[in-house]
């Protein structure tokens, strides 16, 4: 049975239930804490299956020159699945380009949501903190709900929040690397000190990475390559959706501290003398 058959096609009538409260970003409510990306997808049909299997409420798209074949199909798919669209500024290298891209997206889609992504170069794909902060400030001042893609630096995250970001999106590791969370201490620190939702973005390779992000206190996870480049994208989407849920529940349950020595879980009292 395919993922599409397991889930109702009309999401509006029967929303997938999640074992967590919705994600709220500056008053915008999202039932799923898993945000999906459309990048690296192999076909619209496969993307459709994956989006359905992920149970996502929000999916990110790039803004590019109009292509009647590509643009219309994707637009119709997102409408059909009743998904909220998070336009991103992928491909921008300056605050100026990112601001214009966000404004174009707002005009095209009628949304004030934007994922600000300003990269420093096309090999590392790492976010440029200076340009990102500039774009964040300008767009937040203009009334946009800015979700800012950042490095895993807690101070940059603090500045992004100060610049008006409605959510901060630190990377686990470089885009598409699948290396997971390279600095869990920083991610936890960002999650503990931010006053806006923290969404882990970039670097997730498999379900356990997403679970770890949530266990560290993130409010959500964004994945693109991890699903769209997986051998079986819909199956991976479902696995990561489960991991986000498990990670949320584990974080709320409170894990035991790590210790260098064993700690017995059985009482020593009442042991029979058997010698």
């Amino acid at each position: 049975m395919s993922a599409a058959e397991r889930r109702p096609a009309n999401r509006g009538e029967e929303e997938m239930e999640h074992r967590y409260p919705p994600l709220v970003v500056a008053g915008h409510q999202f039932a799923s804490r898993l945000i999906t990306g459309t990048g690296a997808m192999t076909s619209l049909a496969m993307l459709r299956e994956s989006l359905i299997a992920s149970g996502t409420s929000l999916t990110t798209v790039a803004i590019r020159r109009f292509d009647p074949r590509a643009s219309v199909g994707l637009f119709d798919l997102l409408q059909e699945l009743k998904l909220e669209v998070l336009p991103n500024t992928a491909g921008c290298y300056s605050a100026r380009e990112a601001v214009t891209t966000a404004r174009l997206a707002a005009e095209a889609l009628g949304t004030k949501l934007v994922k600000v992504e300003v990269i420093a170069d096309d090999t590392s794909l790492l976010p440029d903190p200076i340009e990102t902060l500039r774009a964040t400030e300008e767009l937040a001042d203009a009334g946009f709900c800015v979700m800012a893609y950042l490095s895993d630096d807690p101070i940059v995250a603090r500045h992004a929040e100060g610049a008006g970001a409605s959510a901060v999106m630190p990377l686990g590791s470089p885009i598409g690397s699948g290396l997971g969370i390279l600095n869990p201490y920083n991610i936890r620190l960002i999650a503990e000190t931010s006053h806006v939702p923290v969404i882990l973005d970039a670097g997730v390779g498999t379900a356990s990475d997403a679970a770890q992000a949530m266990e560290l206190g993130c409010a959500g996870v964004l994945v693109a390559s991890a699903v769209n480049r997986a051998e079986d994208p819909p199956a991976m989407a479902a696995a990561i959706a489960g991991a986000v849920e498990a990670g949320y529940l584990a974080h709320r349950a409170g894990r035991i501290p790590r210790r260098a020595q064993a700690v017995a879980s059985s009482p020593s009292e009442g042991l029979a003398e058997l010698l």
Binding site: G39, T60, R64, R65, A70, L74, A90, A105, E107, K115
Partner: peptide
């Protein structure tokens, strides 16, 4: 879009038309 009908295109104008694309 509300201004398209009253916006004239002059010689040498550069028009960019954008939409969503898979990415990010």
């Amino acid at each position: 879009r509300s201004q398209w009908a009253v916006t004239l295109i002059t010689d040498g104008s550069a028009v960019e038309v954008v939409s969503i694309a898979a990415g990010g």
